[in-house]
C-alpha cells in the first residue's frame, strides 16, 4: 500500500535576476509503507527541496503530495505542521539539535508537537542508539557521531510513518557513516517507518536495495 504518492510536483524559486528558476518537477514518485528508498543526486539537484516539500516545510507551486492518505499540497501551513508532527520524522545533515537541551530533552522535543511527551520511550530510543549513558549530555558534550544518533532517535520519537533523511552522513567519516546508515535503517524497520534518504555518497547508497537516481525522478 502506498504511503507516499507524489504527482506532477513543481517548485520554482525566484533567481537573483528576478526570473523564476524551476528546481523541482517530479511527474510521479511513490513509496510503500515500511519501504526504504535511497535517492542519489549531486549537490544543488533539489534533493533537500524535494524532502522539504514532502515534509510540508515548503509549499509546492503545483502538483500533489499524499502522505498516509492525507493530501499535503492543498493544506495551509498550520495543517502541514500538524501532518509533519504526526507522520514524518526528519534527519538533517547538520543534525539540527538544540544546543540548550540535553540529548533526552532533544528527543522529547521531537514528541512535543505530535503524540505528546513519552519520557520512557525517549529513554528507550536513546538506549537503542547506544546513548543510554549520555542522556543528560548536551550536544556540545557529544561527539559528531553521537549527535547524529540523537538526531536519529529524535526523528523516530513521534513514531512516524515516514522518515526523511537528508544527507545524514554528510558530516561523518566513512566508518561512522556506514554505522549511522545501518542504525537508521534498523530503527526505521523496528518502528515500521518507511525511510526516504537522499545522498551523494555511493557507500551509503550501496546499502539500499532500491536506490534511484534523483535526476530520473526530478525532470528539470
Amino acid at each position: 500500500m502506498s504511503l507516499l504518492t507524489v504527482t506532477n510536483l513543481e517548485k520554482a524559486y525566484a533567481s537573483p535576476e528576478g526570473s523564476q528558476s524551476r528546481i523541482i518537477n517530479v511527474p510521479h514518485f511513490e513509496m510503500d509503507a515500511g519501504k526504504q528508498i535511497a535517492l542519489r543526486g549531486s549537490s544543488g539537484a533539489g534533493k533537500t527541496t524535494f524532502l522539504n516539500l514532502i515534509a510540508g516545510i515548503l509549499q509546492a507551486d503545483r502538483g500533489h503530495i499524499v502522505v498516509a492518505g492525507e493530501e499535503m499540497t492543498g493544506l495551509g501551513e498550520s495543517e502541514r505542521d500538524r501532518l509533519r508532527a504526526h507522520y514524518i520524522g526528519y534527519i538533517f545533515q547538520t543534525f539540527n539539535l538544540l544546543a540548550g537541551y540535553t540529548a533526552l530533552e532533544n528527543v522529547m522535543l521531537g514528541m512535543m508537537f505530535g503524540t505528546g511527551i513519552d519520557t520512557n520511550f525517549a529513554r528507550h530510543l536513546l538506549e537503542r542508539v547506544g546513548l543510554g549513558d549520555r542522556m543528560q549530555y548536551r550536544p556540545s558534550q557529544l561527539s559528531v557521531g553521537q549527535q547524529q544518533r540523537v538526531a536519529v532517535a529524535r526523528a523516530i520519537a513521534n513514531r512516524p510513518r515516514l522518515v526523511l533523511a537528508d544527507e545524514p552522513t554528510g558530516n561523518l567519516d566513512y566508518h561512522h557513516a556506514n554505522e549511522a546508515v545501518t542504525l537508521i535503517r534498523e530503527i526505521c524497520h523496528e518502528n515500521s517507518a518507511a525511510l526516504l534518504i537522499v545522498s551523494h555518497d555511493s557507500e551509503v547508497l550501496g546499502q539500499f536495495e532500491e536506490a534511484k537516481d534523483f535526476a530520473q525522478v526530478n525532470c528539470v
Binding site: D81, R84, L97, F113
Partner: peptide, 16 residues
C-alpha cells in the same frame, strides 16, 4: 532563528 526553524521542522506551528 535556527532554533525556531528546528522547532517548526519538528511540527511546532507558527503560533506555538
Amino acid at each position: 532563528r535556527r532554533e525556531f526553524a528546528i522547532l517548526r521542522s519538528l511540527g511546532a506551528r507558527r503560533k506555538t
